[in-house]
């Protein structure tokens, strides 16, 4: 029981006000380093986004205000990259989350050594570096000699080998499959842990109420997994927004701009066209977009 503050009858003179410092010295090393390597670049990006700055150009950086942003609005490639980013991110995350959920439910009762081994094996894709994943799938997607074409031909699904990564309409889905393969273990592990965390009494009392099979999953387990799923999705959405390695190593954004996401576009603008100012403007827009998710994420955390 706590005592509510009783009016103004206290004697303020007798009180030694507790001084809470603004900052703590122990945070300084981390804060200092991050201020330099993250804080400063973020601010610098904002500045650069308002400049016409070409890294190899002969003219010095020039302030152009909102010109870069105006250019952005009329840049069809930017819009395509934005669309690709959204499709790539939400598509892969949704599929990976569903697959991870299915795997978690499938292996829920697998106990003992066999269960542990199965679970560990299902996690293997996670331990493969992104760049390796990319090259591996690139190899498997090959039109001539690719394992995937060979399999599909043998199964009679297709008649002629397909050049997956070179057809504009197929390249993005192909990259997404790769991404799903690499990401599913994350959801699997997260949801398996959450499933294991459901109190036994809840499951048992549901059983007593004659819930079984599907109704047990939908009615009882899914609500318990909601938070884990939410946090996992938000984390992966953010991670996928920023994904560079897989796309770059597989297609470099091609064919055309078919797999160009915002990261790839920024990278190309900055380090192939050397248009630092314009690249920064794209970065700023995208930063704003990401912050929306970051806040959604923080809100979700606070609700928990």
């Amino acid at each position: 029981m706590r005592v509510a503050l009783a009016g103004n009858s206290r004697r303020p003179a007798a009180r030694t006000a507790e001084r809470i410092p603004w900052f703590d010295t122990m945070v300084l090393p981390s804060a200092g380093v991050l201020a330099i390597v993250v804080g400063y670049p973020v601010v610098y990006t904002l500045v650069l986004s308002a400049e016409d700055y070409n890294l190899i150009g002969t003219t010095p950086p020039r302030f152009v205000g909102g010109d870069n942003f105006a250019k952005l609005v009329h840049d069809p490639t930017f819009w395509q990259a934005l669309g690709n980013t959204l499709v790539y991110t939400f598509g892969s995350v949704a599929i990976a989350a569903l697959l991870g959920l299915a795997l978690a439910l499938l292996t829920e009762r697998a106990s003992g050594r066999a269960g542990r081994i199965v679970r560990a094996l299902l996690l293997t894709p996670w331990a493969v570096p992104f760049v390796v994943v990319a090259f591996l799938f690139r190899y498997m997607y090959l039109q001539n000699g690719g394992a995937i074409n060979a399999l599909l031909l043998a199964a009679g699904v297709i008649d002629t080998p397909i050049s997956w990564l070179n057809v504009a309409s197929l390249a993005l889905p192909a990259v997404m499959v790769t991404n799903v393969w690499a990401m599913t273990p994350f959801f699997f592990l997260l949801l398996a842990a959450a499933l294991a965390g459901i109190p036994n009494e809840v499951i048992e009392s549901a059983r007593v109420d004659r819930a079984r099979g599907w109704s047990l999953v939908v009615g009882i387990k899914l609500p318990f997994l909601r938070n884990a799923l939410l946090v996992g999705c938000l984390l992966m959405i953010i991670a996928n927004f920023n994904d560079f390695a897989k796309i770059w190593a597989m297609t470099q954004g091609g064919p055309g701009y078919a797999t160009t996401t915002l990261v790839v576009y920024v990278y190309r603008q900055a380090f192939e066209s050397f248009a630092i100012g314009y690249a920064s403007a794209i970065g700023v827009v995208w930063l704003a977009l990401l912050l929306v998710f970051a806040f959604a994420y923080l809100r979700a955390l606070r609700v928990r």
């Binding site: 706590r2 005592v3 509510a4 009783a6 206290r10 007798a14």
Partner: peptide, 14 residues
């Protein structure tokens, strides 16, 4: 002597 303790606005000792 007259010990008083509050957390935020909650008085826990007076």
């Amino acid at each position: 002597r007259d010990i008083e303790k509050r957390y935020d606005d909650t008085l826990v000792l007076r």
